[in-house]
Design a binder for these strands. Structure first.
Lengths: 155, 155
DNA sequence: TGGAAAATCATCCGAAAGGGTGACGACAAG
DNA sequence: CTTGTCGTCACCCTTTCGGATGATTTTCCA
């Protein structure tokens, strides 16, 4: 990355120098700034395109297809029921109810559905959501679910 | 593509006009061409990078490589990169772009963030969302993610 | 080279989600 | 008895999401 910045600087400097030089040649010509501008624009657009391609080189996404031997079955709960990371949970101050809400969020329920399932009001669900979002440091339910999985709070 | 050329022309023309205007302001200042040049360089470099990213987001060449794994059933498959179930994907008619969107949804991004990351408009992201939701038979993003995981479209 | 598929973008509108705040009751601990 | 925590509920407001629909452009294949 530093190399690109360096190249950028070099090209810029070179161009400035070139302009300095050409300025003396065309100093008598009026309205030559537009010419310079166009030149610089085209040049640096090309450079930008090159740079954009360079720094975002298409990494070949090699997809490794797993052919599972029919054993435990990877996806769902493999035998033993999931055990949330109690240490992490207590460290974050996540209560049991909030974790329950988070799990329901992860299963894709809406606030209304959660409220119906837990026999509480939708507002309560929203409060729990807000609390657990705050404790996880996330703002959206999808993010919170992702975070919960990373931290061992969710299967 | 034509639109990009058009945008290029517009930006260029706008800049030329701006320079024309500012030239009268700084006409008394010597050596201001360097300033113009630097301005134009930075501006069009950014534009070029954007354009380069924009017009070259070609379909990533997916190389499917089948590998036998012992089916440990662990959570995050170590080592092996993930593996969308191509059969399921094609059966549902989920395009690569839509699957990409679904993966970003699963990682917790909002539509706006996805749009910024993919260099498309938020509306486009929403369209992709709606399509993939329809194909998965779900209505909410959390549900769609859950479904995608169950069906092997997501890790 | 023409058409199908896919991707892109847009607009309108309603629903859902989220932030902030305040409040009330239960319950355990001091 | 006071205090703190937790669960519960409510209100208002803004943001985000999702559905429906139409249009244009790009890509790809026959």
């Amino acid at each position: 990355m530093k190399r690109h910045v360096l190249i950028f600087g070099l090209v810029g400097g070179l161009l400035i120098a070139t302009l300095q030089y050409t300025q003396y040649r065309f100093v008598v010509i009026e309205h030559s700034v537009e010419l310079y501008s166009a030149l610089v624009a085209v040049l640096f657009s090309a450079f930008g395109i090159w740079l954009g391609l360079r720094i975002t080189r298409r990494r070949e996404t090699i997809v490794v297809r797993e052919v599972l031997v029919p054993a435990t079955g990877g996806g769902a709960a493999p035998g033993a029921a999931f055990v949330p990371d109690v240490a992490t949970q207590q460290r974050l101050g996540v209560t049991a109810r909030e974790l329950e809400i988070l799990a329901l969020i992860a299963s894709g329920l809406s606030n209304r559905e959660m409220a119906a399932q837990l026999f509480v009001s939708e507002n309560t669900v929203k409060t729990h959501c807000a609390r657990v979002f705050g404790k996880l440091g996330e703002a959206r339910r999808t993010q919170a679910v992702q975070r919960g999985k990373e931290m061992g709070l969710l299967p």
